[in-house]
Nucleic acid binder design. Structure first.
Lengths: 131, 131
DNA sequence: CTTGACCCTGTAGTCGCTACAGGGTTTAGC
DNA sequence: GCTAAACCCTGTAGCGACTACAGGGTCAAG
């Protein structure tokens, strides 16, 4: 049950070059190669890649995922550090949401300008320093 | 009332290297130079830089700002395009908020794991493919 | 046996800066 | 007048997380 990089890409939904990139930065262990130099992957590798992918989908950085992967490889350890990491990340996400909401409110105030000329446009005015 | 790049940086709150960067990519017109090659800026240039800065604070990309600057320079034109740009941007901001909210909800479900070991940790489990 | 689909490496591009290195210039204090 | 600090210059490289080539080698179907 070994896969080429193309097959692995299909089954995981991760781009071929992204997989190579992950290997290059050491997030995936160097793949076993065929005689001709092609990478081969087994179920273990596919699992790990899916782990990384889900981490990305949850918005973790690759550095955070690197830590999470290491932690996940030590099932006997307490999960406090995992939880701390996730909480920190959640806090960041909330901060980003708050920032974007402020932006949203300000943009809402500006759009829908029906002035006939840029001279009177309240968007341009706001950008130019008017309030 | 001419300013050096350092003074301009202080009065606008934009980093010196960022100002140079904006000039390099053509977002600011090339600054007038002194004999010894130092950039000098007047009120016009300061205004324009503040325009760019406010655009960034509203989350516009530099490309969008480039367009906005050009539009703002043609006060006779209708402001429909400005408005269209701002609305498109608002839609993007809303999309990003929606995405982050989904993330937030998922992370909320996961954090606060008090298991004693990584083996049982629901965060690791979620990343490993469990739900 | 050819053709097309796949694989390889290495490098450069994206965005919006930021941080040097290695120089030249100006200014403030003595 | 001199020196040292503070400023300015260019050019290049780095960040994160990919993506997109170029220029080659390999494999499988018909």
């Amino acid at each position: 049950m070994t896969l080429t990089i193309g097959k692995l890409s299909k089954t995981t939904g991760v781009n071929v070059e992204t997989i190579r990139y992950y290997e290059r930065i050491g997030l995936l262990t160097p793949a076993v190669r065929t005689e001709s130099g092609y990478r081969t992957f087994g179920e273990r590798e596919a699992e790990r890649l899916r782990f990384v992918k889900r981490g990305r989908e949850l918005g973790f950085s690759l550095e955070e995922i690197r830590t999470l992967v290491e932690l996940a490889d030590q099932p006997g350890q307490p999960c406090a550090e995992v939880d701390r990491l996730a909480e920190g990340h959640l806090a960041e996400v909330r901060q980003r949401i708050a920032d974007l909401r402020r932006l949203e409110a300000e943009l809402e105030r500006l759009v829908g300008c029906t002035e006939s000329s840029v001279r009177e446009c309240r968007i341009v005015e706001a950008l130019s320093g008017g309030r």
